[in-house]
Design a protein around this nucleic acid. Structure first.
Lengths: 203, 203
DNA sequence: ATTTTGATTGAACGTTCATTCAATTAAAAT
DNA sequence: ATTTTAATTGAATGAACGTTCAATCAAAAT
């Protein structure tokens, strides 16, 4: 009896509106009142679905971070060799697709919050570790397959993401698209060397 | 005639108070009123020296970023070989000294602002490029010296900082100090391989 | 038709915010 | 001493903030 609950859908709508606003005007300039205005709805409705702004931000972060998983999607996976799949994924990682799908400003803005909120820190850690272990699996497949002789799959995956994260950190500051492409392919190449780890450092 | 100006010193005091507060409570939770209270001074005094909060934030960012240059300091430089100097600097970069000197929360918090303020973005870019070119100089010295055969000093310096920045991005989320040390030395080792760039990627 | 339940509104709360402006105080110079 | 200049205060501004609560509205079930 009684009215059907719209909780899940309304919450989603609110988060999407929050995301869009924060993307355009910055996380620190986005208030509950502004979100409500953008949705043409009363501010107290937002508080009704998320009790506090804190909860709303947690939800936003989940929304943002959940966007990162599909980066591992490879079409026609079944018909491809492990090596091909791995190379396609690495191509995806070091491509502008990745860059346009997500908003770096929000990603780093929320990352900065993680220093003050352990819940947020844990969420980011889980994302980064999840990405690493997924990439490690693909490398493992190549090792089993004999197409790679990498020592330590997880370590290699970690190093590749270290390079990737460092690369995007710097590239967010670079404007010239031509230079950006050059940089990106250099970084990708360097990341690939991680898979062939026989470099010796002279004493 | 008239009273001596305290502008420079007062401004510095204000920025230091701002820095301390923002470090403890977060950039987004630090207001002019709070800074004034911490200094036991009237809020309007702060506005008197910095006309707007925007100006105050610019000054804070300069203050923060200026802290990064001394990382290149090496004692008794004159009596050391270029190779020794380079290795000491790289040791410094991949050490916790670097990590404790600066506040990552503020560094990333201000970095996030750079997406909305070109002035800030330019400041960060200048810092990162400055660090790279200084490291490149040290590498150049080793090449002239014959102690290194690196192809491209600036490219190598860039890659080392890519690894460094990616490393700190990830390590800010890691709590276990033992794991942190292991990671750090692995990343340093990988950064060093950049100086010996002969790794070939099989077709 | 009435009851039940949840969606949504609207008004109000006290706080904090950045900023303004005039008034006051303190140190130099004449 | 008086003038000049700058430091500093104190009161006030309006706007925005997150949150509260009671009131109303709309859809299901009886």
């Amino acid at each position: 009896m009684g009215r059907r609950s719209l909780k899940a859908t309304r919450q989603q709508e609110i988060i999407v509106a929050f995301y869009k606003l924060a993307k355009k005007e910055g996380l620190e300039n986005t208030s509950i009142a502004k979100i409500a205005k953008a949705m043409d709805v009363n501010p107290s409705l937002i508080i009704h679905y998320f009790q506090t702004k804190e909860e709303l931000i947690y939800a936003l972060i989940d929304f943002i971070l959940d966007k990162y998983t599909p980066i591992f999607h490879v079409p026609n996976k079944a018909s491809k060799t492990p090596k091909t799949i791995l190379m396609e994924v690495i191509d995806n990682l070091f491509s502008k697709k990745w860059n346009t799908l997500f908003d770096d400003s929000l990603f780093y803005g929320c990352y900065a919050l993680s220093f003050r909120e352990n819940k947020i820190k844990a969420r980011y850690k889980a994302l980064l570790d999840g990405l690493r272990s997924k990439l490690a699996e693909l490398i493992e497949d190549c090792i089993s397959d004999g197409s790679l002789a990498t020592d330590n799959a997880l370590e290699a995956a970690d190093l590749i993401f270290i390079i990737l994260d460092g690369a995007y950190f710097y590239m967010s500051l670079v404007k010239d698209p031509k230079l950006l492409n050059e940089k990106l392919s250099l970084y990708k190449q360097k990341a690939l060397t991680v898979l062939y780890n026989h470099t010796e450092i002279p004493a």
